Computed example of a mutant assay.
Amino acid sequence: MKLKGTSPYFVRLWKPVAVMALLTLVFARMSGGAFSPPETTGPTQIVGQTLRYALPSGEFVERRFVDDRSARWKIISGPRSGETGTEQVAVRMVSAGIYFVNRVEPLGGTTRSEVYNLAARTVATYVTRPDPEDPLRRIEESSAGRLEIVAGAPERPDASVPASG
C-alpha cells in the first residue's frame, strides 16, 4: 500500500511505530494505567510523631505534631537548650510519608518551611526573616539533614482481635 505524498522512509516506519504504540497501550491497560507508588520504610503519618533534627542555626530541636495545625517543640542543645513552646503550623502531605510544614512567627515575621521525608529520614528547612538593615529585603537560610524519629503515634489495635483483660 502506497500512501499518497509520503516518502518511502515513512512507509517503512509507520507499521513498526503503530505496533509499538498499540503494545504500549495494551501494557499500560494491563498494569492499571499507572506506576506503582514507591515503597516506604517509615511511618506515613506525621501527626503523633516526635522528630529530632538540627535547625539551620545548629541547635537541635524535638518537634511533636499534635495535629495538622499545631506542634510542640523543645530545643535540646545550644544556648537556648530547654526552651519549649507550642506553635501553629500548616501541614500538607506531599505524598505518602513526605510532608510540607510551614509556619510564620506572628511578631517577627520569620517564616519557616520544612519538608519531612519520614521514609528516608531527612528534613530540608528554609527560613526567611526581615533584614534589620533594609526593611524591603529578607535574609534567607536553608539546610538539609538527617531526621530521627524519637517517638511515633501508637499503633491502632486490630479491630478483629478482642481486647484482653
Rank of each mutant, 00 (worst) to 15 (best):
M1C: 06
M1G: 14
L3W: 09
L3C: 15
K4L: 08
S7W: 08
Y9S: 06
Y9A: 10
R12E: 10
L13F: 10
L13T: 07
A18M: 15
A18P: 08
M20Y: 08
M20S: 15
L23H: 05
T24K: 05
T24S: 12
L25Y: 05
L25C: 14
V26E: 12
R29E: 13
R29M: 09
M30C: 14
S31A: 14
G32Y: 12
G32W: 09
G33Y: 11
A34C: 05
A34V: 12
A34F: 05
A34S: 15
F35Y: 10
S36C: 03
P38V: 04
E39A: 09
E39V: 14
E39G: 09
E39M: 10
E39N: 13
T40V: 12
Q45Y: 03
Q49I: 04
Q49S: 11
T50S: 09
A54E: 07
A54F: 05
P56E: 06
S57F: 09
S57C: 10
G58D: 09
E59N: 03
F60H: 08
V61Q: 10
V61T: 14
E62F: 04
E62T: 04
F65S: 02
F65G: 00
F65M: 05
S70D: 09
A71L: 08
K74W: 05
P79C: 03
R80I: 05
S81Y: 09
S81P: 02
G82L: 09
G85W: 00
T86W: 04
E87R: 02
V89R: 01
A90I: 04
R92N: 11
R92I: 07
R92W: 07
S95G: 13
G97C: 06
I98Y: 00
I98R: 01
Y99F: 15
R103V: 00
R103G: 00
P106H: 13
G109V: 05
G109N: 09
T110R: 02
T111I: 06
E114N: 08
E114R: 02
Y116R: 02
N117A: 02
L118G: 01
A119I: 01
R121W: 01
T122G: 02
T122A: 01
T122W: 00
V123H: 00
R129N: 02
P130A: 11
E133S: 11
P135F: 03
P135Y: 04
R137F: 05
R137D: 11
R138W: 02
R138G: 00
I139E: 03
E140W: 09
E141M: 11
S142M: 04
S143Q: 06
R146G: 06
E148H: 12
E148W: 06
V150E: 06
A151R: 08
A151I: 06
G152S: 10
G152I: 06
A153C: 05
P154Q: 14
E155C: 10
E155L: 15
E155S: 15
R156C: 04
R156G: 10
P157K: 13
P157V: 14
A159W: 07
A159M: 12
V161S: 14
V161W: 15
A163N: 12
A163Q: 12
S164N: 13
S164H: 15
S164K: 13
G165N: 15
G165I: 08
